[in-house]
Amino acid sequence: MSNAELARQVGVPESTCSGRLRVLRERGVIAGVHADVDLGSLDVPPRGHDRAALHGPHT
């Protein structure tokens, strides 16, 4: 979900929403995010269960 969509759903300006998310990340309240990937939509042969982890300031 984009910051704009989240802000719209909770009824606050985008700048307020992004600031609150930043504070929650800094405090460790938001420890990470995830994506549900439809592997069937990829044009690659199946290889069992694939898993990837991304690390950085916004993960």
Rank of each mutant, 00 (worst) to 15 (best):
M1Y: 11
M1D: 11
S2E: 14
S2R: 02
A4Y: 08
A4I: 11
E5S: 01
E5K: 00
E5L: 01
E5C: 00
E5V: 02
L6I: 06
L6D: 07
L6E: 08
L6T: 03
A7R: 02
A7E: 03
A7W: 04
R8F: 02
R8I: 02
R8V: 02
Q9G: 05
Q9M: 15
Q9K: 15
V10D: 03
G11P: 07
G11S: 01
V12C: 09
V12P: 08
V12T: 10
P13R: 08
P13F: 06
E14W: 00
E14P: 01
S15H: 04
S15K: 04
T16W: 11
T16S: 10
C17D: 14
G19Q: 03
G19I: 00
R20D: 15
L21G: 12
R22L: 15
R22M: 12
R22P: 11
V23G: 14
V23K: 13
V23T: 15
L24C: 12
L24D: 14
R25Q: 15
R25M: 13
R25Y: 12
R25A: 14
R27Q: 15
R27I: 11
G28S: 04
G28A: 03
G28Y: 00
V29L: 06
V29H: 10
V29P: 08
V29N: 10
V29Y: 05
A31H: 10
G32W: 01
G32Y: 01
V33Y: 11
V33F: 09
V33N: 09
A35S: 08
A35D: 13
V37P: 04
V37R: 10
D38R: 11
D38F: 08
L39S: 01
G40W: 13
G40S: 14
G40N: 15
G40Q: 14
G40T: 15
S41D: 10
S41H: 11
D43V: 13
V44Q: 09
P45N: 08
P45H: 05
P45Q: 09
P45T: 07
R47L: 05
R47T: 06
G48E: 08
G48C: 05
H49Q: 07
D50F: 09
D50C: 09
D50P: 10
R51W: 04
A53V: 13
A53I: 10
A53G: 06
L54A: 08
H55R: 07
H55M: 03
H55Q: 05
H55V: 12
G56K: 05
P57S: 02
P57H: 00
P57F: 00
P57Y: 00
H58K: 04
H58P: 01
T59D: 03
